[in-house]
Amino acid sequence: FEEIIHNMGGKVLGDTPTAEQDYGLNKPGEIIHEVGTTRMGNNPKTSVVNQYEQMHDVDNVFIVDAGPFVSQADKNPTWTILALAWRTSDYIVEQFKKQNI
């Protein structure tokens, strides 16, 4: 991240975590943004929800949190959660109008 900031002409503020601090990364279970408990994918045998976070086995259930993420990014997933929830909301309205749910 420091290289990206530098290449954009910015200046990193604050201290960078060291190797002794595990570079600021924590083990699973020690961070508040747990993800991946209800995996997203096209195959019902290997995932819980489809691309719209709709359960494969229950049409009227949507999981719009970080559960459908297939992996954890290095940073806070809030904006991704919001974007996917927005897309899912649009999909729910569209499907409701078509009387599919």
Rank of each mutant, 00 (worst) to 15 (best):
I4L: 13
I4C: 00
I5P: 03
M8V: 00
G10L: 08
L13S: 05
L13Q: 10
L13C: 04
D15H: 11
D15L: 07
T16F: 14
T16V: 14
P17M: 07
A19G: 03
A19S: 10
D22C: 05
D22T: 06
Y23T: 00
G24H: 08
G24A: 06
K27S: 01
K27Y: 07
P28K: 05
P28E: 08
P28I: 03
G29H: 13
E30W: 15
I31C: 12
I31N: 15
H33W: 15
H33E: 10
E34D: 11
E34P: 03
V35S: 06
V35L: 07
V35T: 09
V35I: 07
G36S: 02
M40C: 01
M40G: 00
G41I: 02
N42G: 15
P44W: 10
K45F: 06
K45Q: 14
K45Y: 09
K45P: 00
T46K: 05
S47H: 07
V49F: 06
N50I: 01
Q51V: 00
Y52L: 01
Q54P: 04
Q54F: 04
Q54C: 00
M55F: 10
H56E: 04
H56C: 02
D57V: 01
D59C: 04
V61D: 06
I63P: 05
I63W: 11
I63Y: 11
V64K: 08
D65E: 09
D65M: 10
D65W: 12
A66N: 11
A66C: 15
A66H: 07
G67Q: 08
G67E: 06
V70K: 09
A73S: 13
A73Q: 13
D74S: 12
D74F: 09
D74Q: 10
N76S: 03
T78Y: 14
W79D: 02
T80P: 12
T80L: 13
T80Q: 13
L82H: 13
L82D: 08
L82M: 15
L84V: 07
A85T: 12
R87W: 10
D90I: 00
D90M: 09
Y91S: 03
I92N: 11
V93F: 14
E94C: 01
Q95R: 14
F96Q: 12
K97C: 00
K98S: 03
Q99W: 08
Q99N: 14
I101K: 04
